[in-house]
Design a binder for these strands. Structure first.
Lengths: 349, 349
DNA sequence: TTGAAAGCGCTAACAA
DNA sequence: TTGTTAGCGCTTTCAA
């Protein structure tokens, strides 16, 4: 099986020997089975005995060996999290929510990073399966399709979160990018803005295409004209935000009175560019960003209204659904969760 | 003992039964012991037998149960990472390095978040000990002292990284903040700057005090005068960077020709403020930041020279030292690792 | 060169 | 109410 021969750390130091259930039994003057029953709050035991056993166990510093327990119970109370985004900005809140949820259930999470390396990913899956994880969560850098985890993990519960498995039977949890865009544009329209431009990232991101769709449909819903010169795909940077503003203002089109930006970096760049041209945000041009990344939204001048993908909640839900699946539920399909609008000064208030 | 009664997910679904070593033995027509020997590249086996066994194992999709192996070998090939920084900006690169290092050794990492909650931390340690982790890595939000992990984990190898255990025997790995500050000021002095100010964060951070010490000592080494009006502690924000610049330029002191900032956010704020006052960076005022956080350094105008704490390498080393300790080495004490200078336009080039 | 068997630490069904 | 015992899946010593 392991045909690689990388040396593993060897134990040469003193074994840290901990008391076993056997020791507890001996000290308490009862049988092993009785101790087990007492510690697992099982069936029928004299209250006195139970308490004595628990006391002895505590005194000895007994801590049951989960490995042995799992071996028997066929459940390890452990899940693997595989990320293809080397613990990046989007993975963090997801991890946080996931970990929180699982900790509540007394489960623990193995972190595995497999940034764009399918072989490494396979190795991780291999190890995790060896450790008999009860399930897997897969997360990715971008919300585009990715190949499913493959047949290695056949039958193992898997949840894809912020990552879209290219397998209709798999459960994929994603933010509703389109709905988020609608929220943004609706908000601007309600403020009375008539000329809303959309500056965004590269179109090969599924998220960009979805947000564009939301942008156009919300414009239509608000009976606002659609002008293709107002749609500017580009890259995810502040510099692009600044440049896009230059193009809009120096171009032949009428200047917009609002910007919906594909992320907060673009939005911040746009805000800077507008200020430097003497235009006021929000009175001349209102701005909505995307991601609600505090590092950007709070530091920008003025602070940015933004769309929050609620990634922490998404991570938490991934944990909940995974537990459902571990408990035997059959779940699947692509599911999108709503974004929310966070209003700050860049759209007035 | 678990005296809490939170329900754990229960297995009700179909058991995913995998072939055991027993199945392999049966199919290959040999004894269990022989299979074990074959798969673990152990001692004396007929080549033919070994190959046959390996073939059968592969065909059956046999994957040894690490839980059972660990039970016997008394090593789980698993470590716990406890963070008190809810997977924040500084924890990420550390995790990345750590995970990379341990993956090379075929070990896996349990992620535990215990943001400022000692009870939660204790619960995590408890669980990890139950899972018989081979060691623990503890990381924190700020490089200030924290109480050690307590007697629960007595005898277990522990490495504190980017966190300073209040226990001289514990191994703590930290960036050399003072040395980093020296690098920055030295660099500015070498560029011929004479009036170098230091805008930084709150003094209750040990890092702030250390960097200040480095700032003053490097000034002295360069035979530059020390002016207390040039030392401005404050908060870790862009807004503070802007305000500090205002104070320096509007104050009674002579304007500085260089700024060493306690982090990149302050540096960016300072750069913005200078530009908006018509001063050029770097020709009028050069700037060095701290953290080398690309989100800030690259987006700033001009891009910022900064001090890198090499956190990923620190994480990697934490893994290496932990493995040394697991292998029986006795390691301890507070150790600081060098920062490095990354030069960009804000100090010319 | 291979097989048999005694555990690793714990659970759970069955006896006493 | 408590004890006995047969495993869980694997490793390793000792015999064959």
């Amino acid at each position: 099986m392991d045909d690689e021969t990388k040396s593993s750390a060897e134990v040469t130091g003193p074994e840290r020997l901990r008391p076993t259930i056997r020791d507890v039994a001996r000290h308490a003057g009862v049988s092993i089975g009785t101790v087990s029953k007492a510690l697992n709050k099982g069936g029928n035991l004299a209250l006195e005995t139970r308490e004595r056993i628990i006391a002895v166990a505590k005194e000895l510093g007994f801590r049951p060996n989960s490995l042995a327990q799992s071996l028997h119970r066929k459940q390890s109370f452990t899940v693997g999290l595989i990320s293809t985004d080397s613990f990046g900005r989007f993975t963090m809140p997801i991890m946080e929510g996931l970990e929180e949820c699982l900790t509540d259930r007394r489960m623990q999470v193995f972190m595995c990073n497999a940034t764009d390396d399918p072989a490494l990913e396979a190795q991780h899956v291999e190890s995790l399966l060896g450790k008999r994880v009860d399930g897997l969560v897969v997360t990715a850098r971008r919300a585009d399709k990715r190949p499913p985890i493959g047949p290695l993990a056949h039958g193992l519960p898997i949840v894809y979160v912020f990552s879209h498995a290219d397998d209709p039977d798999a459960l994929s949890l994603l933010p509703d990018d389109e709905g988020g865009a609608v929220l943004a544009v609706q908000h601007l329209a309600e403020l009375g803005r008539k000329r809303i431009a959309h500056i965004t990232g590269p179109e090969h991101f599924e998220a960009v295409r979805l947000r564009r769709a939301g942008y156009f449909s919300a414009l239509a819903a608000a009976r606002l004209p659609r002008d293709d010169a107002y749609y500017l795909p580009g890259v995810w940077s502040e510099a692009w935000g600044r440049e896009a503003v230059a193009r809009l203002l120096d171009g032949r089109v009428q200047s917009p009175d609002a910007l919906f930006c594909g992320n907060d970096q673009i939005a911040r760049g746009a805000a800077d560019a507008l200020r430097e041209r003497g235009l006021d945000v929000p009175s001349d041009v209102a701005i909505v960003g995307f991601d609600n990344w505090d590092v950007m939204t709070l530091a920008a001048r003025p602070p940015l209204t933004s769309i929050d993908m609620n990634l922490k909640a998404l991570g938490r839900e991934a944990g909940e659904r995974l537990i459902d699946m571990i408990s035997g539920e059959k779940l699947g399909g692509l599911q999108r969760r709503p974004c929310s609008l966070v209003v700050r000064e860049s759209t007035g208030r």
